[in-house]
Structures are given as C-alpha cells and as structure tokens.
Amino acid sequence: MNTLTVLLLLLGIHVAVTDRIRPAIRSLALQGILLGFLPLADSAGSSWRAATLCLATVGVKGIAIPAILTRATSRLGIGQEFESLISTKANILTTGALALAAFLACSRFGLSGSDELGAAAGLTLIFSGLLMMTTRVKAVSQVIGFVVLENGIFLFGAASGSEFTLPIELGIFLDLFVAVFLMGILMFKIHRTFTHMDVRKIHTLKD
C-alpha cells in the first residue's frame, strides 16, 4: 500500500519536473494504472465494486486519457518540449518545496487519520498539477497538469477513505473523461485556427 503510494508520488513528481512531453504522458498512464489498483489493495476483499472501479480507473486514467494526449501530441506535431515559464531547475525546486509544504500541511491540519502518507502524496500531486497548469506554456501540458491534479485528488480521497456509491464514482470518471476529451477537441481546434498551441499568445480577451 505504502509502496504504491510512494510510487504514485514519484511518478507525479516525474511528470512535474520532466521537460519532455512523451515521458510525462507515459508516467501519467502508469500512474493511472497504479491508481486503479489502489482500491484493490485497500479493501483487500475482492468485491465486484472494487473490481469495477479498478477497471474504470485503469480504463479512463491509464489508457483513454493518455491515448488522447499522445494522439494530440503526435497528430498536432507539438514537439517534445514542455516550454515552461520558469526554468527546469526552478521547477524542480518549487515542486520539492510544494511537496514539503504538503507534508507539513497534512500534519498541521491533522490529516493523519487513516493514511498520512497517502494524503500528503495526494496533496503534493494536487499542488504540482496546479503548478504545471500555471507555468507551462503549451495547451497540452496544461491538460497534463489537470490530469495530475485529478489524480492527486483521487489519491487524496482514497487515502482519506471517502467512498461513494458506484454510480457516483462512475459519474466522476465519466466527467473526467469527457473533460479531457473536450480539452483534446479544443486543442485540435485551437491548433487549427491559431496554428500554434502557445497559451501565452492566446490572450485577446481581456479588459
């Protein structure tokens, strides 16, 4: 269980600090698959609910979303670099600091209940996902950041032991999938109309 969490955390940090897109997507996919096994490891008993959830997670987070992202990067010829607003080194340092902050926050807020490590890892992922969204230049990297953030929330939720009925859980997956799918479509459209994916240059709507 803890090993799984640590692995998830490391994968997340890899996504956050790497400056190349493909490896990031691959790590993302792996993270999704591992997340899928989390409920199995947690509940120990092999209820059909856990199995469905596992399937859904692996399906959506481990396969579908990475597929969309890969397809987008290759079809749009986006190039390999993430292109960040801050340098890679700064990125690494910030991510480290955020991880530290997450662990601190967990102990401050008394989140140590069921699984402190899981909660802290989840928070780290959330923070680093947000960081990616706010610093990365390309549209696709913002989507990756969003997925990392979602994964973090998922991990955090799992660690906090929040469970919902199956339809709701499935609804959540569906939402996530549609969101990323829509973002993918929008990316295609943006690429077609703007002929680039640089979010920095898209700021005509302002006051």
Binding site: L149, F194, I202, L205
Partner: peptide, 20 residues
C-alpha cells in the same frame, strides 16, 4: 472563431480546476 476558442479553453480549464 478564435475568441470563442480562447474563451472556451479558459472556461474549461479554470472551471475544471475550481470544481476539482
């Protein structure tokens, strides 16, 4: 059009993060 695209992108991302 471009503006619509930009607006939708911002809408989608910002609201998704918020909702998260």
């Amino acid at each position: 059009d471009r503006k619509g695209m930009e607006a939708a992108w911002k809408y989608l991302l910002i609201c998704s993060v918020g909702i998260a």
